[in-house]
């Protein structure tokens, strides 16, 4: 028999590689983004926590050595109030967003395929306009000289000297306006996969319309609800531009304080300390969701 194996070529891979095996192509494809994101995402995020322990430098930079002064400052009574306001505004805004998004998602999912595309586009289009412009539009609407205020005063629905702008209510309104499309999209994605025959089955078995909706539709889209909750709550907690532009001095959120420390007080460690606090606040819902997902995948959870 002739000697075999005369041709040498690199092996051909079949299917996804098994875990634990690294090859040169994987490194070449992965390293650029890993390096980029470690340098510009992971390291900076860690810096936020580190710099909170540094003293401030009078020139607006970061001083030498380590200190707990910033952490002590954060214990001042002014902060818990701001943190509390940040949390309740975000939570209420999230709840309103979910409440409004549910009927929209349900309506969208039940439309015919053709009209669904158009209505969906209508819903997400405003979300693509510039974020500041949307805030500005509300400033125009709510402006003391604007049509809305004048109309309400004319109808005697509000007194002449009341203002619609520069308070927590305005922040809440614009938060809902800004993040509502974020809530609609994941809920719609979940509702689209929902089997609507289940609702009919529930009605068939004697459930009233609303009851059927609560006991069958809501659990059916629970995954979408969870995602919607996160994508609204997290950016709401980190709001800066909204309270800055439509809020007043008595309705500041953590974001305002961070920006104030950076741009007015030039105290970076203090800003870092506040940001670390915000980061931890954001992590709570993320961890809750990860745990919920894990329970689900372990089985026994809802579909």
């Amino acid at each position: 028999m002739k000697p075999l194996r005369s041709i040498k070529v690199s092996p051909v891979h079949d299917g996804p590689l098994k875990p634990g095996r690294l090859d040169r192509r994987e490194w070449a494809l992965t390293l650029p983004t890993i390096i980029w994101l470690v340098l510009l995402f992971a390291v900076p995020t860690a810096l936020v926590f580190l710099i909170a322990l540094r003293p401030a430098n009078p020139a607006g930079g970061i001083g030498e050595g380590w200190t707990l002064a910033t952490l002590k400052d954060l214990m001042q009574p002014a902060y818990p109030a701001i943190i509390w306001r940040t949390v309740w505004l975000s939570v209420v805004a999230t709840a309103i967003c979910l409440g409004l998004a549910l009927p929209v998602a349900y309506y969208l999912a039940r439309l015919s395929r053709r009209s669904r595309q158009w209505v969906l586009l209508l819903v997400i289009l405003p979300f693509w306009s510039n974020f500041l412009i949307r805030i500005f539009a509300w400033r125009t609407v709510l402006h003391p000289d604007g049509w809305l205020k004048q109309g309400l005063v004319f109808l005697r629905l509000m007194p002449e000297d009341a203002t619609l702008l520069y308070n927590s209510g305005a922040i809440l309104l614009v938060l809902v306006y800004t993040y509502l499309p974020f809530a609609i999209l994941p809920l719609y994605a979940a509702a689209e996969k929902f089997d609507f025959a289940l609702l009919e089955a529930a009605r068939d078995l004697g459930a009233k319309r609303f009851r059927a909706w609560c006991t069958v539709f809501l659990p059916g889209v629970s995954r979408g609800l969870l995602t919607a909750l996160l994508v609204v709550l997290i950016p709401a907690l980190g709001s800066y531009a909204i309270p800055d532009l439509v809020g007043g001095p008595g309705s500041e959120m953590i974001g305002n304080k961070i920006a104030q420390r950076v741009f007015s007080d030039r105290n970076l460690p203090h800003a870092a300390g506040l940001s670390a606090l915000l980061a931890m606040a954001v992590m709570v819902p993320v961890i809750v969701m990860l745990l919920a997902r894990r329970d689900e995948s372990k089985g026994g959870g809802r579909p």
């Binding site: 983004t33 995402f41 995020t45």
Partner: peptide
């Protein structure tokens, strides 16, 4: 690492990059 920037609020990303550059 890829999903991180999608989740983190803008203001955290802004301040963390500012701290890095400073």
């Amino acid at each position: 690492l890829i999903y991180g920037p999608l989740v983190v609020p803008d203001i955290l990303m802004g301040i963390s990059l500012l701290l890095l550059f400073v």
